[in-house]
Design a protein around this nucleic acid. Structure first.
Length: 266
DNA sequence: ATGGTCGAGCATCGA
């Protein structure tokens, strides 16, 4: 049994009690976090060690920042997307030896905080598309080298109209524009599987709701947080779901965690 | 109706 999860926490220091409680209750092997919004010197690593988790992170003041909590120790850690902006801390990857009964295998985990893009046509939008292009170049190499490869995090892309509460209103807007969806489709044609869609085709399954306009209460959300897996893992997936409970908690992140579970690989 | 609310860190920016 292997459990992998991702959550955009929107400030790790504010959400730390929620992260620790969620870890204790769910016991994932691997937990990817985005928008930690904390410099490395101020990262709260001791709290995770006390919970029995290894942690790797790369962050900066006020914006961005990613981390991976893991039961297994990290190997071959990479803290930057090659050929992308090194000033924005949006990428961290590592390899983990998964026990898998008595038949261990190496799993490569790539944790992303894809640029938001602000508005279609803006400078930030162009930066987002360039960043995604570099990601695809990187993953074309990575997928050759790693049989068990997982790409997860906040992609800031809703892949299809099933993933948007009002697709007509959202058509052509940032997070749901055609070029962004094409990039997501590129990852699928590269050989990745959308873990949630391996389990369920339900519409209105969202991972992010705007803080404004009572969006969560009205389920006005988008599914922009994803777990992508190679076919070798897709064969053994047993469950994938979004834990909406945390979004309804006191002082919530605007995102909810996504969780995927796998049975042992023969 | 181009608003609204968070978080970081102290005026505004980013989402």
């Amino acid at each position: 049994m292997l459990k992998i999860a991702t959550w955009n926490v929107n400030s790790l220091r504010v959400r730390l009690p929620q992260v620790l409680r969620w870890l204790d209750e769910n016991q994932p092997n691997l937990f990817a976090l985005q928008e930690t919004k904390v410099e490395d010197e101020k990262f709260p690593h001791t709290a995770f060690k006390e919970s029995g988790y290894n942690v790797i992170f790369t962050g900066q003041k006020a914006y961005n920042g990613v981390a991976i909590l893991s039961r297994e120790p990290p190997q071959n850690v990479l803290k930057q997307l090659p050929l992308a902006d090194a000033d924005q801390k949006r990428f961290i990857a590592a390899t983990y030896s998964i026990s898998n009964g008595n038949n261990p295998f190496d799993l490569r985990l790539v944790n992303l905080y894809v640029p938001n893009g602000e508005a279609v046509g803006s400078e930030k939008y162009i930066y987002k598309l360039q960043w995604l292009k570099q990601l695809e170049k990187f993953l074309q190499q990575e997928i050759k080298q790693h049989k068990y490869l997982v790409i997860l995090g906040d992609f800031n892309i809703a892949p299809s109209s099933l993933d948007v509460y009002d697709p007509i209103k959202w058509e052509g807007r940032v997070l749901f524009s055609e070029p962004e969806r094409m990039h997501f489709g590129q990852l699928i044609s590269m050989g990745f599987f959308d873990a949630l869609r391996e389990i369920s085709q339900e519409p209105n399954t969202f991972s992010w709701w705007d803080y404004r306009t009572f969006a969560f209460r009205r389920n006005h959300g988008l599914r922009i947080d994803h777990i992508l897996i190679t076919s070798h893992l897709a064969k053994y997936i047993t469950n994938c779901y979004i834990d909406k409970e945390l979004r309804g908690a006191q002082q919530p992140s605007d995102h909810a965690p996504v969780i995927a579970a796998f049975k042992d690989v023969p």
